[in-house]
Amino acid sequence: MIKLYERQLETHKEFEMINITADVRKAVEESGIKNGIVAVITKHTTTGIMVNEALPCVEKDIEILLDRLVPNDYPYVHTHMLPTYGTCSGNAPGHLKSLLAGNHCMFPVIDGQMRTGGEQNIYFAELDGLQIRSYFIEIMGEG
């Protein structure tokens, strides 16, 4: 049995970590799947799905780390007009931060609940905001 949900959200900052753990837990509970696995997958190439502790200091450290590794002011190659888009690329840092963040996470589903460690939270990470974004929650297992 497979259940797929698509969620949409509007981001509010260039960099933003949005805690979506409660939404994923609710989707698992509503899916009717008792035992299996849940995957959370972003639809974009300048966002990420992260798992970490939901503390503002940790969130800030993640932001600082990504800015240090991927500075805004750098001679990136992805800075030119894109004929297939008709727009100019100006978001190389978002793409590279997305590479570091990863595009998905997975957790076990046991007795109809998502099973995580006590401090594990799921974040949708905006790395190229503001934008209108989407992500998938896919639950696979036995009903």
Partner: peptide
């Protein structure tokens, strides 16, 4: 000649 861009809600543009 804009090919891959999606629809933009006016309220979002104002933001």
């Amino acid at each position: 000649g804009v090919f891959k861009s999606g629809i933009v809600p006016v309220d979002f543009e104002l933001r």
